[in-house]
Design a protein around this nucleic acid. Structure first.
Lengths: 109, 109
DNA sequence: GAACGACTTAACGGATTAGTTATATGGTCA
DNA sequence: TGACCATATAACTAATCCGTTAAGTCGTTC
């Protein structure tokens, strides 16, 4: 797949908007802006490089683990976060390129 | 209520996102960018000043009249469109200030 | 290889959303 | 005033969303 430096052409506007249209998921994205501040220290997975792990997000969100899993799947399916698996944990970080592209697309609505 | 020239401070991000997270409503907003091109001529209500009337939007959308009414209510409740009543018809136009403000808010997510 | 732990999937229930048709409501105009 | 017409509301149904608990999967680690 080819993409330019500025945009993420195959970003699905409607699914991205649906993913954002949730207070909990907006919270998660806000927390992921500063993983070191918003989450406890992690043994594996650098907070800046890999993000925060599913488990910690769930603790902070105050919902069950399956609920977090699904929220993160919605965000990942919409390409707004990127996951990486390390030593049994799943870490999520923001997809800044897609988020920037989404903002541009919305400015054209 | 005081608002600056640039932003709409009381814009409810979540309800605006929920309002946008619908293919039909995205279509409506796109059509309202150019009412003269996208809708038949109207007797009352200037297309540029007042927008398009509920009835025409429904025809174009291909759903029942109550369905349009509710879509427009969602958009209006989210402050993304502005309605004006004239001679029994309701016209809707885009709220460009709110849409611009929303784009800014989303660029900060 | 067996136990453990993080995550996923399944199954269920309640709330919301989106469509329909039928029925008000209410302003316009003869 | 009375008929008409655009819109709004009501009532209902189907689909989706979001939470839960329980069970399954799979890699880690001892």
């Amino acid at each position: 797949m080819v993409m330019s430096l500025q945009t993420v052409p195959d970003l699905d506007l409607e699914s991205a908007l649906k993913a954002l249209a949730s207070e909990r998921r907006l919270l998660i994205l806000a927390w992921l802006k500063d993983v070191e501040t918003n989450f406890p220290p992690q043994e594996h997975g650098d907070p800046v490089e890999h993000g925060a792990c599913n488990n910690f997000i769930g603790d902070k969100l105050g919902v069950s683990q399956p609920a977090v899993s699904r929220h993160m799947k919605v965000l990942e399916d919409a390409d707004l976060v990127i996951s990486s698996r390390r030593k049994g944990w799943v870490y999520y970080r923001r997809n800044e390129a897609a988020l920037a592209s989404l903002a541009t697309r919305i400015s054209e609505i």
